[in-house]
Design a protein around this nucleic acid. Structure first.
Lengths: 113, 113
DNA sequence: TGCATTATTGGTCATTTAACCAATTACGCC
DNA sequence: GGCGTAATTGGTTAAATGACCAATAATGCA
């Protein structure tokens, strides 16, 4: 059986990962990372989903500490919760590249025979 | 609307993240990362779930390229799919630390008043 | 005050996920 | 061949997720 400390540790990590594990949420984080803070209506327009849907995605990201918000009148701006998001996404990128490389090699191997 | 390239990019990233977004799967990856390859029955014993459940988790991780497997008789050993997993998990760790720091500060702020 | 805009929350419903048990496959050994 | 062990796959069910519409704040302005 898993020890309590290990279990809690795994749950904490999974919680963060779950918050990011959706195409729309990855897109939002990527966008804000590259271009700075965005408000809900701007994101809604970009994404092309219902405002409520986007708002809920943002709530998920905020709860996980990945984004933070700042009110300005009636609009709410979302920005990165911390700089370490950048490193994290870089790590994800290299994981993706490694996977792509492996797939390509496997594809080549199939072709060659 | 999101451009096709951006959408596909977000989906590919989310796919990787989804594969890791479960406490048991995070635990498995962490364990293998620290102690090397494990077979299904060893993992099953450690985790305390049904063999089929563990096997399915491993399939998810393998499909995402996070783990790879190697057969040896009737047992199947799972190991890391690539070294970059280490960097990725390090990034996740610092994200978690940042979050914890922020939570702690907020808690302190509440206590102090 | 009345109205428009921005965002969040309640409600519903379809899809996905993940658990278990049971059945099957694959291999090694007697 | 028959048996035991290891792992995967089929089937079912409960829970979680995510989408939309509708309703409700909350704010700014005429």
């Amino acid at each position: 059986m898993i020890e309590d400390t290990d279990r809690l540790r795994a749950e904490a990590r999974a919680e963060i990962l779950k918050a990011l594990a959706h195409p729309t949420r990855v897109y939002i984080v990527d966008l804000i990372q590259r271009e700075g803070p965005y408000c809900v209506c701007q994101l809604t327009e970009r994404i092309g989903a219902d405002t409520s849907t986007v708002s809920r995605h943002l709530t998920v990201l905020k709860s996980a500490g990945i984004l933070k918000d700042r009110k300005e009148g009636t609009t709410v701006y979302y920005s990165l919760g911390c700089d370490c998001i950048n490193d994290f996404m870089t790590g994800l990128e290299s994981l993706l590249r490694a996977r792509h490389l492996r797939d390509t090699r496997r594809f080549d191997a199939v072709i060659q025979r």
